[in-house]
Design a protein around this nucleic acid. Structure first.
Lengths: 347, 347
DNA sequence: CTGAAAGCGCTAACAT
DNA sequence: ATGTTAGCGCTTTCAG
C-alpha cells in the first residue's frame, strides 16, 4: 500500500492516476457496466493504490441516502435497551447502515435535541421510544421527510410504523399474577417521567385491580422515583419510604428489571425477605435476572427482536410501495422466585 | 407553527422570507455580530416560521466538523460496553456530538467495515477497542485524518490517545486472589478471538502462576469458547467439558462477567457448588453481579468513566495544541461470594 | 464508452 | 451591514 499525500484521496485523485475524469471514476463505482473493462481495471488499481475513501457528505448532498439510522431510547445504560440496540445494529449492518444512539433519560429536551441533530444529519430515519404522548415534535420530523418508526409505543392516531410488545398485556400479566397469589395491596414502582409504554403498563395494572373490585388508588400505590437519579439506586432508597407506611404493600410491580433489582437490593438491606414478606415483579427479563437471588419474576419482552423489527421497518420505509406496519410482540410472564402468596395468607 | 412545503426548508427559503440573501442568514447563524439587530430579528422569525433544519452534509462539505463520533466495541449487548457507551454519550452530548456504535464481535472484517463507514461519514473521530494487535488498519484511518482514541488497549508503538484500565494488573489481581486462597489448578475462560486487552489479562495471570513456581501450561488451562456463539451460553456449555477432565481446575477466571455468569449457571445446572467446589472470578463488575447467587467476585473496571475519558480525549484532538495522552484506570479486585479456598484445603 | 458541465446547500472570503 | 461569488466532492444528465 503506497503512502499517499493525506488530503488528496478523493475520486479526483483516483481519476488523475487512472488517466480518466472523475465522472468516469464515478461510473466505475456506481454503474460499472457503463465502463470498459480495461478502464475499469485501471480505475480499480488506482482506487486500491490511493486507498480511496469516498466523501459521504458530498454524496449525501447529491442525494445518496445517508447510512445513519438514529435510535432514540431512554437509556443506553439499561441492558434491555443495549440488547435491543444490538438487535437493531445487526440488521442495519447488513444493509450497510450504522446506528447512532441517543439516550433521552425520558427528558423531552433531550429527545428534541436528538431528533434535531439526526434530522440535520439527514439521517436515513429514526427509531424512537417517545418520552411522552406529545406528538408534534415527532410529526414535525416526519413531515420534514425523515422516516420515523415508533418503538414501544403504538398510537392509533399516528400513521407510522411501530414495533412494540403489548404493554397493556404486560401490565395486566404482572398485576394478575400477584392478584392471583392473593395480594390485595400493591405498589407500582416507576420513574417520575411519563414514557407512554410505562403508563400503559401501569394503567393496565390499575384496571386489573379495579376489575377485581379493589379501589385502585389504595390497592395499587403509584410509587414514583425521584427525577434525574440513577434508577436502581433511587429504587433502593424508595424501598425505605414504602416500608415506613402504616400499611405497606405486600407486592411491588416495577417498571423494569433495573428498578426491580434496585428494589430487591433495598429490601435485602432492610432484612425484608423476598418473596416471604414482599413479592417483586420486574419487566423486560433482561440478561441474568434469573440468576439473582431470589430469581426475579418478570414480564419478558424480546429485546433483540424488537430492535431487529424496528430496524427492518425503518429500512422498508425506502421501499416505494411501503405501507406503514405495526409489529407487536406478546410479552410473557416468567414466574420465578421473587413472588409468592403474601405472608398473611400463609399463616 | 405554520405548515410549510416540505422540501423547501433550507437557508434559501429563510432568506426569501426574511428578505435577505442566504449569505446573511448564514451570518446571522454563524457570526451574529455581523448582522444588524433588526435584520437578525427578521431572520430569526423566518427561521422559526420555516422550522429551519440546516443541511449537515452541506455544512460538512464546507468544512464544518461532523458531529458523529464512532465507538467501535466488541459487543453492545454486553452491559459493560453499554454502560461505557452511555458514559461516552453523555460527555459527547454536551459538545453537541452523537455516538455511532459499531459492534465487532471481535471480528476483523467487522472492525474494518465499521472504520470504513465512519471514515466515509467524515466522522469527527473514532474510539476503538481493537479486535487484535494488527495496527495497519488503525494507522490507515489515522493517516487519512480521522482522529482515533484507543480504548482498553495501550501500545507503546502507537502514538495515540488511549483510555484503559490496566489489564495486566487486572489479570494479576484475579490470579493472585485465587492463588492466595490456595488454588493450584486454574482455568482461564475466554473467547476464541484475540482482543488485546483480554490477552494481557491472560498473560498476566499466567505470569502469576509461573512466578509462584507452577507450570503455567498445567496450572492455568487456556479454555476457549467456540467462535461466533453467544458468550454466556457457550460458557455454560463449556463448563461440562471442563468438569469432564480427569483433573478439573478448582477455580475459573473469566474474561468478563457475562462469561462468568454463564459459567456460574453451568456449574449450578450440574450441581457443582460455588465456591465450595469451584471458585469463579469475573471481570468488569458489571451492573448487578453483586446480586447473583453466589455474588460474583470480580475485577472492577469503571465502565462509564472509561467511556467519558475516551470521549474527552477524542474531543480534545481538535484542540490545536493537542498532545496525545494516555488515561489509565486502576482495576480493583472485588471479593464476593464466588471464591473461596479449594475443597481439598478445607478438609 | 468517456468527458464536459451543472448543481446539491452551505460557508467564507471579498466586494460593495 | 449586506450581497456577490466561488467552491467543498460528488452524481448525473447530456454531448461527443
Amino acid at each position: 500500500m503506497t503512502q499517499t499525500d493525506p488530503g488528496r484521496r478523493g475520486m479526483r485523485e483516483v481519476a488523475r492516476i487512472a488517466g480518466v475524469t472523475p465522472a468516469t471514476v464515478g461510473n466505475a463505482l456506481n454503474r460499472p457496466h457503463l465502463v470498459a473493462p480495461a478502464t475499469r481495471e485501471r480505475i480499480e488499481a488506482a482506487i486500491a493504490q490511493v486507498g480511496l475513501v469516498r466523501n459521504g457528505p458530498a454524496r449525501q448532498l447529491r442525494g445518496v441516502p445517508s447510512p445513519v439510522v438514529g435510535l432514540v431510547i431512554v437509556d443506553l445504560g439499561n441492558p434491555f435497551y443495549a440488547e435491543l440496540g444490538r438487535g437493531a445494529e445487526d440488521l442495519l449492518a447488513e444493509a450497510g447502515c450504522t446506528l447512532t444512539i441517543c439516550s433521552t433519560d425520558a427528558r423531552p429536551e433531550r429527545q428534541d435535541r436528538a431528533l434535531s441533530v439526526l434530522e440535520e444529519q439527514a439521517a436515513r430515519g429514526v427509531i424512537v421510544t417517545p418520552v411522552n404522548k406529545e406528538q408534534t415534535r415527532l410529526l414535525a420530523t416526519v413531515r420534514r421527510g425523515t422516516p420515523l418508526v415508533l418503538l414501544d409505543y403504538v398510537c392509533d392516531e399516528l400513521e407510522l410504523c411501530s414495533a412494540s410488545a403489548d404493554n397493556s398485556l404486560g401490565g395486566r400479566l404482572a398485576a394478575e399474577h400477584l392478584l392471583g397469589l392473593g395480594h390485595r395491596r400493591l405498589g407500582y414502582v416507576r420513574d417520575r417521567g411519563a414514557v407512554p409504554s410505562v403508563d400503559e403498563r401501569y394503567e393496565a395494572a390499575r384496571q386489573v385491580m379495579a376489575a377485581a373490585g379493589l379501589e385502585p388508588g389504595r390497592a395499587l400505590l403509584d410509587l414514583r422515583l425521584p427525577a434525574g437519579a440513577q434508577a436502581a439506586a433511587a429504587a433502593e432508597a424508595l424501598v425505605g419510604r414504602v416500608l415506613a407506611r402504616r400499611t405497606a404493600p405486600t407486592g411491588l410491580i416495577c417498571q423494569n428489571d433495573v428498578i426491580a433489582l434496585g428494589v430487591l437490593r433495598g429490601l435485602a438491606r432492610r432484612g425484608v425477605s423476598v418473596p416471604d414478606d414482599m413479592s417483586v415483579v420486574g419487566y423486560d427479563d433482561m440478561l441474568f435476572v434469573d440468576q439473582v437471588s431470589p430469581a426475579l419474576t418478570t414480564v419478558r419482552q424480546p429485546a433483540a427482536e424488537l430492535g431487529r423489527a424496528a430496524a427492518e421497518l425503518l429500512l422498508s420505509e425506502r421501499d416505494p410501495e411501503h405501507a406503514h406496519r405495526r409489529i407487536s410482540f406478546k410479552p410473557q410472564l416468567i414466574v420465578r422466585g421473587s413472588t409468592a402468596p403474601p405472608a398473611d395468607l400463609k399463616r
